[in-house]
Nucleic acid binder design. Structure first.
Lengths: 133, 133
DNA sequence: CTGCATGCAAAATGTTTGCACTCTA
DNA sequence: TAGAGTGCAAACATTTTGCATGCAG
């Protein structure tokens, strides 16, 4: 059985209060900044648990880091992620799933799964650092 | 100007002789096995150069590793990758690109890009380790 | 000959694990 | 009280960088 601890709640809370993807390190920093004493190890462990439970979505960043996001829907969906601040929007996948399945079957590949991510710069970040000159 | 060296040719050759994604470490091991003396550092450096040139496609593996593949077409495409052996097939994206663009524009996100990968188990691997019992 | 390329070793990064201690149930 | 949860430090794996040497041009 899973014990209810301050740290566990803190990690989930940090995810819920964010509308974008956060890395383990970011969450750790956030919590420390909030005055919650928590170890980096514990953050990693809870994130892993949440991911295993399917309670959060996982995203591989370019640098090899992993970012997590608490998602509202249980249904299959993808994300539109801001390259700058990590904020993200859930988007439905009208037919991408079906396309992926057919492509896999077509080549004789079994047990198909797919990973789809759309990146962009959100309006806020665009305004902040965006248009430049 | 870029010098033509034995090592540079070796890295590209290793990619060309493979029809799937290979990590830097795998390529390094392959070349060493072939008797080509080459440093891991050099493999990384050439892979980076090739990626910058757009000569190879890059894939983020789950473990945070990066895999590279030499691709035939210059055109935008995605991959169907075997989870087991890394072999991959290039697949066209009928409308995924357009879908991604519209999703991004819809949310006001600028400079949209997308990442799409389909995973599965290729026939060969399926036969080898697949059906199991 | 000049200078980019190489490769060893060390540093850096992100994540995981070992182990003693704490706190929930 | 028992055992899951915690957290520090060390282990790990992958990739990057510093620097002395080597080879292509």
């Amino acid at each position: 059985m899973r014990k209810r601890t301050r740290q566990g709640a803190a990690v989930l809370g940090a995810l819920e209060s964010s509308d974008g993807f956060r890395t383990a390190q970011q969450i750790h920093a956030d919590l420390r900044a909030d005055g919650d004493g928590i170890g980096l190890t514990t953050v990693y462990r809870h994130l892993q648990l949440l991911a295993d439970d399917g309670a959060v979505d996982v995203l591989q960043l370019d640098g090899g880091e992993v970012a997590y996001r608490r998602c509202a829907s249980d249904r299959h969906h993808h994300h539109l992620v801001c390259r700058s601040c990590g904020r993200s929007v859930e988007v439905a996948c009208p037919d991408v799933g079906a396309w992926a399945q057919s492509v896999a079957k077509d080549a004789g590949f079994a047990d198909p799964s797919h990973r789809v991510e759309v990146f962009g710069v959100c309006p806020a970040c665009r305004r902040a650092s965006g248009p430049g000159q």
